[in-house]
Design a protein around this nucleic acid. Structure first.
Length: 262
DNA sequence: AATTATGTCAACCGCAGTTAT
DNA sequence: CATAACTGCGGTTGACATAAT
């Protein structure tokens, strides 16, 4: 049943989209590409507002959109990123291939939020205060660059004989990998530490709390699997990338590093 | 079986930031 | 520089599905 209605003020259709409308919109994007949303209703011959067209495309019609349940790895990443970024759904979704901001937001609101609020470990005062995200305590991830002198000082990155293996349990591994990266950088490059490293420190240092959150949402058992060994060559190439892009949206290297660590 | 409560998710709305004029 | 137009984001709503009574 199609429940779409015609808005009195603007005369455009609202509500659920029909297959025919989807077809027209898809065809329009194929012909003209994404963007220029104010032109889309005219070009497509749709009696819809530009916002409605954009939303329908981004959340439903766009290719490669992943549907269905979230995997444990996706949930784990959502928990970690939300802890650091707050309700920046588009940013979080940007790190989950095939997922839209709307998907992530809906999943958080309907699946995760309630479970976390009622989780015993979050009833404790320390967690309640710690979980309040504000513009002041949200850390902004940024791509990192290092001076040549700093790079020369980071011996651990180029020491190929030192490979962190997977013989530790998850907690210890996080400490081994995450804190080693950050603390070694701190001790060996002193003034060169930037917000990007701080961001990673925070992301990894929170492992204990995140594990409790993960347990609270019921995916802990599935998550009990081993990860590949960490190769310093790969870490090196990721952390030492040259050229700094503007803005903090582009921290794909951070996520590549994250994927490597997990 | 019927009714009510609850959960899910697509879609809408309003606002803020950006770009064009 | 000021204003208008456009775009994208997050909060919220409401229709529908499912579970509980």
């Amino acid at each position: 049943m199609n429940t779409a209605i015609i808005a009195k003020s603007s005369g455009v259709r609202k509500g659920a989209w029909t297959e025919e409308e989807d077809f027209l919109l898809r065809k329009c994007i194929q012909n003209y590409g994404e963007g220029k949303w104010h032109l889309v209703p005219i070009r497509a011959g749709l009696n819809r507002c530009r916002k409605s067209c954009r939303l329908r495309w981004l959340n439903y019609l766009r290719p490669h959109i992943k549907r269905g349940d979230f995997g444990w790895d996706e949930i784990d990443l959502i928990l970690r990123l939300h802890k650091l970024l707050g309700n920046r759904w588009s940013l979080i979704a940007g790190r989950l291939p095939g997922r839209t901001a709307n998907d992530v937001k809906n999943y958080w609101n309907s699946h995760l939020q309630k479970k976390l609020i009622t989780a015993p470990h979050r009833q404790e005062k320390k967690y309640n205060t710690a979980l309040k995200i504000t513009t002041k305590n949200v850390l902004r991830p940024r791509p990192r660059t290092f001076s040549s002198s700093a790079k020369n000082n980071i011996s651990w990155c180029t020491n190929k004989s030192t490979v962190i293996t997977n013989t530790l349990d998850k907690d210890e591994r996080d400490k081994e990998i995450g804190l080693n990266i950050c603390q070694k950088l701190t001790s060996e490059t002193s003034s060169t530490i930037d917000d990007g490293v701080q961001w990673w420190t925070s992301l990894l240092e929170n492992c204990k709390e995140i594990e409790e959150d993960v347990a609270a949402v019921g995916i802990f058992e599935e998550k009990n699997k081993l990860v590949p060994s960490l190769l310093h060559d790969e870490i090196n190439s990721l952390t030492m990338q040259q050229g700094q892009s503007d803005g903090w949206d582009d921290f794909s290297a951070d996520i590549d590093l994250w994927n490597l660590l997990n």
